[in-house]
Every structure is written in C-alpha cells, then in structure tokens.
C-alpha cells in the first residue's frame, strides 16, 4: 500500500510500512483531537463535555504513536514487508472489491455480485465460462429470493431488477 521504492530486493521494507502505519494512526489522533476541541473539552457542572473523552483519547493516541514511531525506527531496514508478487495478489482482490462497491448503487447489489463472482472464478481461479455462469447467476438469484421475496429486506437494486418490477 504505502511502500515506495526497491529498498529491499523483493518488496517494500517492513520498516517503511511500519512507520507509515504509525504515522497514519498519529494523523487520526490529530484529527480526533481537532474534532474534540470543536465539540468542547471542558468539565462542566454536569461532568465532562462532549469532547472531553475524545480529547484525552486523541492525546494519548498521539503519545503512543510517538513511541511506536521511535520503535519503528529502531527496527532493521532489511526486513521485507511482503514480496511484490504477494502484494500484487492482494491488490488483485482489493481493486475488484472497490469496483464492486462502486457499482452497487448503480446496478444493484445482485448484479454487481454476479460480476464479482464471475471475475473471481475466471481470473483468480481458472474456471470455464459454463461453470462460472452457473455459479455467478444462481448465487445472486437465490440471495435475491431469500432477501427480497421471503424475508422482505430491501437491498439496493438497479435497472435489471426494475425491468422485472422491483
């Protein structure tokens, strides 16, 4: 995610990822402290105000992050976080999930799921078009029946479901 160069031969250095994660957590701490200050951090007549606890949490979080950053700097820089091709595999599932989620509001969760299942079966594994079609169509269809017909839970639907009157 966050490693950049070829410091180690096969992947990003563990130390860099470690430091980046700690820095991100520290940033989160700063955001929380900022939000808490907006909400008011005093201790009123009726006990602490809305921002009191978030403020303390944020401050300690920043403190803990400093220690973690310092510890991170002490670790050797030769250790590899993950091999590049391992990370590539992680990336290969991450972007389809992101696209799947992005598609849901437009084409509905059932059709988007069919596409996701088809992608996984054909690209991540090596299934033929026939088996893929069977699984990719039947699973969302059964899910549709369970949720929309039998349990009456409304999930996001798109133009295809609308064609059938849903």
């Amino acid at each position: 995610m966050s490693g950049d160069g070829n410091t180690a031969s096969h992947g990003p250095a563990h130390r860099k990822v470690e430091l980046a994660t700690a820095a991100a957590i520290g940033l989160f701490g700063i955001i929380v402290v900022y939000g808490a200050l907006q909400a008011g951090i005093g201790w009123g007549f009726e006990g602490p105000k809305a921002g009191f606890f978030p403020f303390i949490i944020g401050v300690i979080l920043i403190g803990a992050t400093c220690v973690n950053l310092w510890n991170g700097l002490q670790t050797s820089s030769s250790k590899v976080f993950s091999e590049w091709d391992e990370l590539k595999r992680v990336w290969d599932v991450t972007w389809p999930i992101a696209i799947f989620i992005a598609l849901v509001p437009y084409i509905g969760i059932y059709f988007a799921s069919a596409v996701l299942i088809a992608y996984f079966m054909m690209r991540i594994s090596d299934y033929g078009i026939g088996r893929t079609a069977i699984v990719a169509l039947s699973v969302p269809f059964v899910t549709f029946l369970v949720f929309e017909r039998w349990f009456l839970v409304a999930l996001p639907k798109g133009p295809i479901e609308a064609m059938f009157g849903y």
Partner: peptide, 12 residues
C-alpha cells in the same frame, strides 16, 4: 475462487 466472492457479497 468461488467462496471468496460469495463471502464478499454477504459482507457487503
């Protein structure tokens, strides 16, 4: 390859 996208669907 089959179970992962189904899990993902149900997670969503």
């Amino acid at each position: 390859g089959i179970i992962a996208p189904i899990i993902l669907m149900f997670c969503a």
